[in-house]
Write a protein that binds this DNA or RNA. Structure first.
Lengths: 213, 213
DNA sequence: ACGTGTGAACCGATTCACAGCA
DNA sequence: TGCTGTGAATCGGTTCACACGT
């Protein structure tokens, strides 16, 4: 039972925790009180052993021979992930994709709140979309610092992404979810995660081509 | 030099090939004729050894002591990935996200052509967005079969995703890029790849919380 | 008997270390 | 000497096999 914070936790485990949260929420809606690892992972494609192994990095949450108390487990995982606290995020670039992200319900579900949105298009600046006012990107640093935002979602054109991400780094942003199809090179203390839709699809096409032909 | 098609190729390698393509295109734009693995990977975050290892699964493309001919390598990787042929894809669900995907330039760049788009909203059906006519989702099977589409991008609400994906499977679709935050359970001969934006962001937040605090 | 928790074995992928060719 | 290509070592993560508590 390693409540020991120094132990190494696989990053894949961290990624799966939010899937477990979703599954637990569904079970709670179904009024399920107790569930086995098998039931919790039934609609994820994660094995029940994987689930138990993942939890074992954080402690013991189940009862042998019985299963898990769904509600308390949800709270525990929420605490681990930090979804019990609302976190502010900034959205940079309100083009088509950015607009879609403004209304994306998945963020709210994990207590991630878009607290600022920026664009450089004078047509958009000042408008309110999905309840959020679009600010001039020239005020980015100022507002990010003022509002104490540490996380940014970057949905700007590829050729602007590197420059803007450097300004984000200079504004105290610590983590960036990057939708632009370029690799950002930034100081090592900034976490970057890339969502590369075309490349994802391409590798799927490749598999298809190779697997079936 | 394994031109041997039976050899096992890591799926991570397949995913990186499209990154290499992008890098090579940039070099071609810069009029570079020959480049070392070091130069090709400079703006990716992939090591040069990784790059060479990846290529080694498909053959020998470089010249020792010199580097790679940029243009021929681009063609070779294009052939491997199949981006030399235009592939038709279908877009299911033209909400905010779907609309953003309609205009996403990254697909075209990899020769992936959106050849059909579907929605169930009568307001949208018949409209033309980004040059593509939105069709009634009830005609999905018919049109996908007629047009010989094998790849679908699914951007519908979470609670509809499973049902629609089953219909896609029944329409001869072989690969799905799924944006809905649910796991699709489908026959094993259908490739599914998930883009889970909220979960991606959440794992970033977790890292941040853990790394720096 | 049932379902959790976990060290050990295993597997896929990355990195090392160096041989090979220009 | 410079840079590619690759078997061997290593690493991170998953799966196995089983001990443990109820």
């Amino acid at each position: 039972m390693p409540i020991d914070a120094n132990i190494h936790i696989p990053q894949e485990t961290a990624r799966r925790l939010s899937l477990y949260l979703r599954s637990l929420k569904r079970l709670i809606q179904n009024k399920t009180k107790v569930a086995s690892s098998e039931e919790i992972t039934r609609f994820l494609n994660v094995s029940s052993v994987q689930f138990r192994k993942d939890l074992s990095y954080f402690g013991e949450f189940g009862r042998r021979g019985i299963g898990y108390d769904v509600e308390t487990l949800r709270q525990e995982i929420g605490k681990i992930l930090g979804t019990n606290v609302v976190r502010k995020i900034a959205l940079i670039g309100v083009g088509k994709l950015g607009f879609a992200l403004l209304g994306y319900p998945g963020f709210l579900e994990l207590n991630l709140q878009i607290s600022a949105a920026f664009d450089n298009d004078p047509e958009k600046i000042g408008k309110v979309l999905a309840g959020i006012k679009i600010e001039d990107i020239r005020r980015m640093k100022e507002l990010i610092i003022n509002r104490g935002i540490k996380i940014a979602v970057l949905s700007v054109p590829a050729d602007e992404a590197q420059g803007i991400s450097e300004k984000l780094a200079g504004s105290g942003i610590k983590a960036i979810l990057n939708f632009a199809p370029v690799n950002l090179s930034l100081p090592g203390n900034i976490y970057v995660s890339n969502v590369d839709m075309a490349s994802e699809l391409e590798s799927l096409v490749y598999k298809l081509k190779r697997g079936r032909l």
